[in-house]
Write a protein that binds this DNA or RNA. Sequence first.
DNA 1: TCATAATCGAACCAACCGGTACGATAAAGC
DNA 2: GCTTTATCGTACCGGTTGGTTCGATTATGA
Lengths: 230, 230
Amino acid sequence: MAEKPANTSRCEGDAAGKVKTRYRRHAAGEDPAKRGQILKGAMQCFMENGFDATSMNEVCRAAGVSKGTLYVYFTDKVDLFEALVAEERDRMFEGIEALLKQDLPLREKLVLFGRLMVEVLCSDRVIRSQRIVAGIVERMPEVGARFYDVAARRNNASLAELLERESAAGRVDIPDIDLAASQFSELVCAGIWRARLFGKRETPPSTAEIETLVQSAVAMFLRAYEKHAG
Amino acid sequence: MAEKPANTSRCEGDAAGKVKTRYRRHAAGEDPAKRGQILKGAMQCFMENGFDATSMNEVCRAAGVSKGTLYVYFTDKVDLFEALVAEERDRMFEGIEALLKQDLPLREKLVLFGRLMVEVLCSDRVIRSQRIVAGIVERMPEVGARFYDVAARRNNASLAELLERESAAGRVDIPDIDLAASQFSELVCAGIWRARLFGKRETPPSTAEIETLVQSAVAMFLRAYEKHAG
DNA sequence: TCATAATCGAACCAACCGGTACGATAAAGC
DNA sequence: GCTTTATCGTACCGGTTGGTTCGATTATGA
């Protein structure tokens, strides 16, 4: 939408100087705007009905693209789906690393981290993605595994890094850093994330709710791992 | 399998005394053994491919039942699926209430509870069920919600009850019992359940792993909520 | 203005879907 | 034995699927 191509998009087939066409227009399946348009429509459909129950015709209609064109940009239904999941998974926790770079006391950092985590993980969009991916793990294991790896584990990694530093500085006493990171991530969503995933709760948590959850989680976490004054 | 019919199975169509047939054999779709046989085959199929990608023909083949018979026992694909989910959800945490009835100190109870929880929640069978259900929440919200309600919340309820008693006895100080119950449930599976759900981990945790997780969770939980000696 | 080619749009394909119909089979009760 | 009937097996139905094909259209760049 807001992002126009902006890149030059050379024709790629004319290596070795054997130029035949000198057109600067986008090659057959390489207009990033059109690609984005397709992905957007596809996302809409897959989110509503999941992988199997979404037909390629629906996707065409939703994306406003002819079927022929669709199959120029993506070879397969699976190909399209995987591209979608990849995009979503990469976008999901974009800002989270930067967040921990700030110079703040541990408690504050945990609060910020926790807030963002609940907000993202329990948002409509992410919940729906997670449902679809979970539902298809059995048939496309690598897709699920990569989804988890990039989204959840990257998270844990940056949190673990923070905890590592705090541990080295002697401010906390954590026997198993990775476990602790997981525990915090899990604590912060206690009671809502699962409910959201299975549709028991139809709306994301309010900011007040988030605050309660995060404060409780941080308190619990620090009480367990912070070095006592004594 | 092991359970033979054993119930009398009256014909239901012969109310008002207008008896025509006096057969004691099972009515058209009422043999519980056959029903179980169908459910077992269906489970196998659904577990492998999910709801949409499982065809009724496959189910027939896997169950060793003709299509006609299948449609005598279940009116629909959805009907069959819902019966399956209902069975699975009810079976999932069968023994968990009894577990907390024992007369043991809180710490021991939490350990027992936690162990069972991880074991069940991360087992192949349950993980697969959860994937399928999660994947279909968008189109069958009530199924997902009931699945969660019965499985997860029943759990939390019995745990909450325990905590309530301990709180009344003055041994713990818990501001929000339900939250605390959720936190414990979440803590106990930290780092593996999600990984299992998304297929990042292909095997359930070993007993050693479970022990580590549970011990850490219990310690953390008690440090946060147990009343201090001082 | 004109040639080029990306896109459109609609027809088309074989395969399969969920579900039904119905005669053949076989097991149960008299 | 005979009758009853639950189950079987298969053919069948209309509809949809993922994917292909191809001429018409339209925007581009020289």
